[in-house]
Design a protein around this nucleic acid. Structure first.
Lengths: 247, 247
DNA sequence: AAGTGGTCTAGACCACGGT
DNA sequence: CCGTGGTCTAGACCACTTA
């Protein structure tokens, strides 16, 4: 059926990006079915009036996303997949909002404290120097879901309690011009203390299983911009993500 | 210091790959320090006798890995980082081996069973059709660390109990010519049943917190090749990984 | 204004997979 | 053998950052 592809050369959007978006959309809503061939690059380039490298760049970006597979001597195929989106550095707030869970946040603490050894090591600052400390309780449908304790280096961002209650920390950082780049995460589990169980509303009380996550986030210059220790109610939350095999 | 870079045109290894490997090695052992500029692409291309697109391809691959950052009008910098390796589809066996933990495996069950509704949905086979079922206990230093229950579609791979005890499932699949492509994971926590606690040697017994993981793995044609339900002793294991922000 | 990366072209030859 | 993707070249112009 030949797929209606076209590029707009007067647009400021790069040509390869226009093409990759259209291909992705075609895959998304089923115009390109799993397993179907994409047709060779030279023909595709000729049809669109583009050079082969430009077409390759578009296709490669979708291969990197895991939507397409290329095989020498065969061609480029749509992956056969239940595959949807790759793992990304996600915000719990955004995750909940996307799931239609109506997230709410209660800021418990928003202050400046001297950095403990652990926090200093994670953020790359002097032990005992001032860092921001924010403790929040995240609720969904009025039920506690997670307890979030975060540390931030000073002077990076203005931590307004009201803003923290209406949006996520990541969104605030991005709005402050910080380009998030990578994060190191550790996910584990342990038994709750009596105080933790109480805080999260776990009826089981002390000893109830908790899902824990520690994360240090870096901006594009490699500086640590946030260190967080989070605990989740496992009955309410789990981490779901998609991995791609690195080639 | 100018960094001793060179390419071997008689090698079958692609030029861009030779270059990216040398740059990565230079970053790894500190010849290129965090924050340092890489010098402009044109000059680098001229110095190596390569074309600019080839040099760009080398640099881009390191940008994708999170080792370099590019800025228009500024240049290409080494990321400032504690950043090491990106998240990959990992094998518990390989992880443990890399950590010097001397993994051992005890195969508890290796049989063929009719697929339950959950397994059938995950593997994309008919409910009640035959699937392989493997239950293993993974030990490190002689201590139980995880209980692994996996299902595989029939006819994919020869599941030899002896091989399963000496290596990981992923390595067996790769050796059988299966190209792993992506996986969908869910990580959570819950309380152990009495039997589970016993199996993992948790003294706390029933109610002890467990770290749980469910994973469906797909090959490069998008077919599900493995579905697993794993439980880990949280005192012995946690998931550690690095995320990159998708651009 | 100068220098950087971002995009794009129009070719070329090679390696691999299937016939 | 032919067709595919994989790699590579030698240019070009543009957009952005910094001084």
């Amino acid at each position: 059926m030949s797929l209606d592809l076209r590029v707009d050369r007067s647009s400021p959007v790069p040509l390869y990006f226009q093409l990759s978006q259209q291909l992705e959309a075609a895959i998304e809503h089923g115009a390109l079915t799993p397993g179907s061939l994409l047709g060779n690059e030279i023909e595709l380039a000729a049809r669109l009036g583009l050079s082969r490298p430009t077409v390759r760049q578009a296709i490669q970006s979708l291969v990197d996303k895991g939507l397409l597979v290329r095989r020498r001597g065969v061609g480029t195929q749509v992956v056969h997949s239940q595959v949807k989106r790759p793992l990304e550095l996600s915000s719990l707030y955004d995750d909940l909002e996307a799931a239609g869970q109506r997230p709410a946040t209660k800021v418990l603490v928003n202050t400046v404290v001297p950095a403990s050894a652990e926090v200093a090591a994670a953020l790359g600052v002097e032990e005992g120097s001032d860092v921001h400390r924010v403790e929040r309780l995240r609720l969904a449908h009025g039920e506690p879901m997670a307890y979030l304790c975060n540390y931030l280096p000073p002077g990076l961002i203005d931590l307004d309690t009201e803003q923290l209650e209406t949006t996520g920390l990541y969104r605030l950082m991005r709005a402050a011009g910080i380009t998030l780049h990578s994060a190191r995460q550790s996910i584990g589990a342990r038994a709750a203390s009596a105080a933790e169980a109480e805080r999260l509303g776990e009826d089981e009380g002390e000893g109830a299983p908790l899902l824990t996550m520690q994360r240090t986030t870096f901006d594009d210059t490699g500086r640590a911009v946030e260190f967080g220790t989070h605990t989740y109610r496992p009955s309410r939350y789990s981490f779901e993500f998609q991995l791609l095999v690195r080639s």
